[in-house]
Each structure stands twice: as structure tokens, then as C-alpha cells.
Amino acid sequence: MIEVRDLRKVYGPKTVVDGVSFSVEPGEIFGILGPNGAGKTTTVECIGGLRQRDGGSITVAGMDPAREGRAFREALGIQLQESRLPDKQTVGEALQLYSSFYEKPRDWRELLDRLGLGTQEKTYFAKLSGGQKQRLSVALALIGNPQVAILDELTTGLDPAARREVWSLLADLKGTGVTLLLVSHFMEEAERLCDRVAVIDGGKVIATDTPEGLAAGAQGEQRMSFIPSAPLDLAALQQLPDVHGVSTSGDRVVVSGSDNVASAVIIALHGNGITAQKLRVDQPNLDDAFVQLTREAEEDSAMTRAGGSR
């Protein structure tokens, strides 16, 4: 549905997007993750035909955004980062206005109800909460019944409750057939919603996988912590084959190690008649994978720079 090959975009001396490639299947929710300034927005603005690319090829629903015409705009809905409406425009008016731009728009009232804005039809934009504004923004991106929708930094600046509100809405959209391209720097968002993600840093794709696949690939350690029911020989714990490190933090004992560390420690404790109270086990998650990936990318480019200056 979306095919990006070797996309390049240069601003003056700076290469902002440097050979980005990925493809998105129909009906998929695809995430583009990356730290601020990684080139995410520039990438999706090229895909959306809002910027001219300097190299590579892009196909969206069989069309080239660089030669965008009416058919392209009908097929693609875009929610832009930090895009607002006039203060005194009501929710209903905005949806009616935007639906008049399309050949076969969705029923705006149905969309309104679906996005939980049914009771806000006559509310001015300025009076909406942050979450409601973002949901309206999603509604405007979907009003034309697009095959593909791009949503850029949808939940940035929202409080946790509003963020969850928007997430549940997007989860509902799954299975309606629309292909979603989601730009985010929230790992939790990608973990909950995306079928696959591409991590972009320094204008390059540094990884593409499912969120679980990326998390599993991270060489993060399992970390467990607990309060032992009786004094514990920490040195003996350290000797266990799966354990990499043991430390204490107040009453708690913190053990890190490979995948089996939790069961190994519990068995060892059990053998000594000790139980692990208030046990916590943390899996390496997408956050860890993300930090690790972007740090590696940074080190690589630092090495390249050092090598180049010699």
C-alpha cells in the first residue's frame, strides 16, 4: 500500500532523510519511531506529497506523491503535527466543510459518534479538550474515506488519560481496512497499536520489525527484584549460572541476568527455605530496544566522523 525506496531529502548542506526504505501492507498499522529530529516528519511529509523529495521513489496506493493530483488526495488522509482550527469553528461545521472536499466522504455524523464526539457537535474548537481536538483531527484525516491515513505525533502533549482515549480509538480502526502510518516517539504507543515499526535515526532506518521482535532483539537483561523473607547470601546468588549481577537497594535485592534468571533464583531461594516477597520481573521492552538501537546508531556515526577526520 505504501512503498518507500531510498528516500532522500536535503535541506541546504544537511541531509535530513538519507536513504529511507520500507513498505506497508494494506490494512496494516505501521509505526515510524525515532528520536526528535530523526527525520520522521520530513519522511511522512514526502510520502504525503507536501514536500518534494530529492531522491528515491515513493508509491502510495499505486500513485506517486510527487505527481499528486486529486485522486491522490482522495486516497490519502493526513493528520499533521500541531495543526489547529479556527477557535470559533464548531466540530460539526469543520466535519461538514471537510467532507464537502471529497467525492465519496464518510457520513460525518457516524464518524462523529464513532470518535466519541457526538455530544460535541456544536462545541467550538477552542472549547474542546486536548484529547477531543486530536480525535477531531483524526476524524478530519478519515472523513474522505481514505485508503491510507498518516497520523503524525498524534498524542504528543496529551495527558495520559487523553492519550489512552486516542489509542482506544485507533485500536478500533484496526480491521476497518484503512492502512495507518503512525509517527511517534512514544514506545508504549507503538507497542500497543502497531503491527510493525520502523525505527529511524539520523535520517536512516536502523531497524524494521514487529514491536515484540524489536524488544526481543534488544540485548537487554531481565531484571528481577524482591524482598527476601530471611537474610540471604548474596555471594552464593552471584554464583548461579544465569545471574550476571546482584545488588541491593534498601530491603530489596536486585538481580539481573539472562532469560532464565527469575526461575533460577526462585529455585535457589526455595532450596534455602527463603521466599521472594513483593517480586517484580521486568522484561526488556521496546523502550530498551529503542534506546539501544539509537545509541548504537549514534556511536556508529561518531566513529564514521572520527574516521573521516583522520
Binding site: 504525503g48 507536501l50 486529486r70 488526495r73 482522495e74 490519502l76 488522509g77 493526513i78 499533521l80 500541531e82 495543526s83 489547529r84 482550527l85 479556527p86 471537510y98 464537502s100 472536499f101 471529497y102 467525492e103 478530519l140 484525516a141 474522505g144
Partner: peptide, 17 residues
Amino acid sequence: TRYRELGVLKRLRTTPA
């Protein structure tokens, strides 16, 4: 200028209008 600041003009560019 206000519409430009709000991003209304840019949003319109994303539509067939």
C-alpha cells in the same frame, strides 16, 4: 496570517480542495 499560524492552510493542502 492567523490561518497560516494555525496550520489551517497546510491542512487544506492535504485535501482534494
